[in-house]
């Protein structure tokens, strides 16, 4: 479902003396449906960079990043948008929403985007918010004013609203209490069970051990180490 071959990434900082920073080189990776892999490696090794590249958020300098039927390194924006809408979910560490939009609609939006009716989308959103222990009183409010942990759970609810066949999870259990952590791990296991291919970054080792089938050390692809 997700396949990377010989992917590399450099940043060129034009306004800082055109410094060229090589971050990743020769990344090869394959994730099958129903499989969950963990990206590991020290801080700054490039875990988040690699995840952003798979999402099409960062551009690759070379190589192939295949998700579903497209190569994200060469795809037209509209193809990437289509893939993101229907096939590739991403739970980032940050919630980015239009201010003023009620939490319920923030969570329902990925479903609305693929054509699900408002009532059905909201019903799914209500179920997820309930499961993630977001008090019902908060649903009509914008999540922009919520605490960090609440925002994180809204973000997760939003990320799991639509059953994407491929998912990217960036620290999904960070800043969660034990009960909510358990709910999130359950969501991940359910996604695996329905055949989703998942790539995650988990600092929570116990969580990693429970849901991940294998680990990929990103440090293996950082040029200093490779050299």
């Amino acid at each position: 479902m997700i396949e990377l071959s010989n992917v590399s990434k450099t940043f060129t900082l034009h306004n800082q003396g055109s410094a060229v920073i090589e971050v990743l080189r020769g990344v090869n990776l394959r994730v099958a449906p129903g499989e969950c892999i963990a990206l590991t490696g020290a801080s700054g090794a490039g875990k988040s960079t690699l995840m952003r590249m798979i999402y099409g958020n960062y551009r690759a300098q070379s190589g192939v990043i295949r998700v579903g039927d497209i190569d994200l390194t060469r795809a037209e924006p509209r193809d990437i948008i289509r893939i993101r809408r229907r096939q590739l979910g991403y739970v980032s560490q940050f919630l980015r929403v239009v201010p003023r939009v009620p939490t319920l609609d923030v969570v329902a939006e990925p479903l609305r985007a693929v054509g699900v009716g408002q009532d059905e989308a909201r019903a799914t959103a209500r179920a997820l918010l309930t499961r993630l222990n977001i008090p019902q009183g908060l649903w009509p409010l914008s999540p922009t004013t919520f605490s960090g942990g609440e925002q994180q759970r809204v973000n997760i609810a939003r990320g799991f609203a639509h059953p994407y066949p491929a998912m990217l999870l960036d620290e999904p259990t960070a800043s969660l209490d034990a009960a909510n952590r358990e709910v999130v791990l359950g969501l991940i296991e359910a996604a695996k069970a329905r055949g989703a291919a998942i790539i995650g970054i988990f600092h929570d080792e116990a969580a990693r051990a429970r849901v991940c089938d294998r680990e990929v050390n990103v440090s293996d692809f950082t040029p200093e180490r490779a050299a």
């Binding site: 060129t12 306004n15 952003r52 099409g56 958020n57 551009r59 924006p77 990437i80």
Partner: peptide, 20 residues
């Protein structure tokens, strides 16, 4: 390009300046 790609990983010197 894609909006988030251009904003988060700008390639051109001017875009980098604009974003920063």
């Amino acid at each position: 390009g894609l909006t988030d790609q251009v904003l988060d990983d700008p390639q051109h010197a001017y875009t980098q300046l604009l974003v920063s």
